[in-house]
Each structure stands twice: as structure tokens, then as C-alpha cells.
């Protein structure tokens, strides 16, 4: 049986729906990982001891165990204690928190790298520590970590394929389903790869846009 890509357009609607789910879950998880990353970083650096300890445990769980297990835990495990999340939500939370922990490491390092004089200048004007962090230190730290966070977001896109195991019909699962009907794995896995590549390009384009916008202010 030779290769025949002319079959791909026939199933384009299913694939595109997969793309939509992949983009959706990647965006939701990316947003959560970004906001969560900042919060985790602030707690780790400035939080009271009582708050820092549970956060360390959460960090360890998300860095030290497979993402697959985390997704199972959130989707199937939480049901047992009465939290029944839709697959998309569970997947976004799992992916988002997983990458929030990695982003938090980057942001912590960036916060510590902001010149001490910045905090001092802000405090001297009368800002509280919280105001100084919010207005002066964190914005600079976030600017500094845009490139490495961008890399994390590409990794997030790739790992979003894992949410197929909890039944989110994202791109990889959609491709699999089409293959189940057509028995043409090569064509459809390649088609899926092409879509991932395009999404990747879009993400890089957005990242470059953001970097260009903030480049004067560095």
C-alpha cells in the first residue's frame, strides 16, 4: 500500500477540530502557567513559612512525577473526593500547574536578579514592599524571562498531546481516530505533525512580537 496524501482533505474537519482543542488547551494552560508561575514565585520568595511549605510540596509533586500521572490524578483521582472536572478543564489545570512550577523557577531567579537598587528606589518613593514588587520588580523579572518561558510554552504545546489519555479530542487523538477509520497512520501522523509545526510557528511569532515590544524597556 503506497502513500496517498489525497485522503487527508477528506478528514480535514476532524483534524481541524483537533487543532482547535489543542490550541484551546495550550492557551488555557499557558495562561494558568504564567499567572501561577508568578504567584508561586512570589510565595516561594516572600510568602510566610506556613504558606511556603505546602507550595514546596506542590512544586515537588509537579516536578518530580510524570505529567501523565498528574493528569490521571486530577481527572480520575479528584472524582473520588467529589471534584468531577470536565476533561478539558482537568487537562488545562494539570498542564498549567505542571508548567507553572517550571515557570516559577525561572521567575524566581529573574526576581532575584533584578538590581537591589530598584526595590530601594521604589521604597524610597514611599511604595510598600508589595507595591514595589508589583510595579517595579515583577514586571522587570517577567520581561527577562519571556524568552525561556517561550521555550516552556513550546514544550507545553507538545505535552498537550498527553491530555488525549483523559479523552480530550486534541490533535493527536483526532489523528489517531482518523487512522482507526482509514488505516493510514503515516499520512495522518504526518498531517498532525504539520499542524503542530504551524502552531509552533504562530507561537514563535507571538513571542517575537512580545519581545520586540519590550526590547526598548530593558
Amino acid at each position: 500500500m503506497g502513500l496517498d496524501f489525497s485522503i487527508v482533505p477528506k478528514y480535514l474537519d476532524i483534524l481541524l477540530l483537533g487543532v482547535a482543542w489543542t490550541v484551546g488547551i495550550t492557551l488555557a494552560a499557558a495562561l494558568l502557567s504564567f499567572v501561577g508561575g508568578i504567584l508561586f514565585a512570589l510565595v516561594a520568595l516572600y510568602g510566610p513559612w506556613l504558606l511556603r511549605q505546602p507550595f514546596r510540596l506542590v512544586s515537588w509533586v509537579f516536578m518530580g512525577t510524570p505529567l501523565l500521572l498528574q493528569l490521571f490524578l486530577i481527572y480520575f483521582g479528584l472524582v473520588q473526593i467529589g471534584i468531577d472536572l470536565p476533561a478539558f478543564v482537568a487537562g488545562s489545570i494539570g498542564l498549567g500547574l505542571h508548567f507553572a512550577v517550571y515557570n516559577s523557577e525561572l521567575i524566581q531567579a529573574a526576581i532575584l536578579a533584578v538590581d537591589r537598587g530598584q526595590m530601594e528606589a521604589a521604597r524610597t518613593l514611599g511604595l510598600s514592599r508589595g507595591q514595589a514588587l508589583r510595579k517595579v520588580v515583577v514586571p522587570q523579572a517577567v520581561r527577562a524571562v519571556i524568552p525561556p518561558i517561550g521555550n516552556n510554552m513550546i514544550a507545553l504545546l507538545k505535552d498537550s498531546a498527553l491530555v488525549s489519555v483523559i479523552g480530550v479530542s486534541e490533535l493527536t487523538l483526532s489523528a489517531q481516530r482518523v487512522i482507526g477509520k482509514t488505516y493510514r497512520p503515516f499520512e495522518f501522523y504526518l498531517a498532525a505533525a504539520a499542524f503542530y509545526y504551524v502552531i509552533n510557528l504562530c507561537m514563535e511569532w507571538v513571542q517575537r512580537k512580545i519581545e520586540r515590544r519590550i526590547s526598548v524597556s530593558r
Partner: peptide, 14 residues
């Protein structure tokens, strides 16, 4: 109380 530093400490992102 205004303070002026040797290294300016302007906020570079603003």
C-alpha cells in the same frame, strides 16, 4: 523624603 542614588535606579521598564 526624596533620595537620589549614585546609580540613578530609574525603572528601566517604564
Amino acid at each position: 523624603v526624596g533620595m537620589v542614588f549614585q546609580h540613578f535606579n530609574l525603572f528601566p521598564h517604564l
